[in-house]
């Protein structure tokens, strides 16, 4: 079953003119948001985007922009408390107290 989160919220933006057809975005996206059409990438299923940022990071031609982050309420709450960006606590060296389940 294909699970879909909230509609029309993703910050994903794609500039087709910059696409060189390298296919990287179609390979890194964990939700199949990009497909190839006429030797260019196309967004096919925008509401599946979880803003992980893999496509942007691996696009050598800056054709993709997205405000990447973690879709994790605990991270957002802790970010607000600390006044930082939402970061997964994960109980690593830099933070304690938040051992949220996002790091299983």
């Amino acid at each position: 079953m294909q699970l879909t989160y909230l509609k029309n919220v993703t910050t994903l933006q794609y500039n087709e003119e910059r696409c060189t057809g390298c296919r990287m975005c179609t390979m890194v996206c964990p939700h199949g948001v990009f497909i190839m059409e006429n030797k260019k990438a196309q967004i096919t299923n925008k509401d599946q985007c979880m803003e992980c940022g893999a496509c942007m990071k691996n696009c050598a031609w800056d054709a993709i922009q997205v405000k990447a982050g973690v879709g994790c309420a605990a991270a957002i709450i802790w970010g607000r408390i600390r006044g930082t960006e939402p970061v997964c606590g994960c109980g690593d060296d830099s933070s304690s107290g938040n051992s949220s389940s996002c790091c299983g």
Binding site: L6, E51, G71, C72, A73
Partner: peptide
């Protein structure tokens, strides 16, 4: 369950901010 967004594999930052 709102916090379970972090353990799920398909929720986005923008989406979680909106629902919060």
């Amino acid at each position: 369950t709102l916090n379970f967004t972090g353990a799920s594999t398909y929720t986005s930052l923008s989406g979680v901010v909106k629902e919060m």
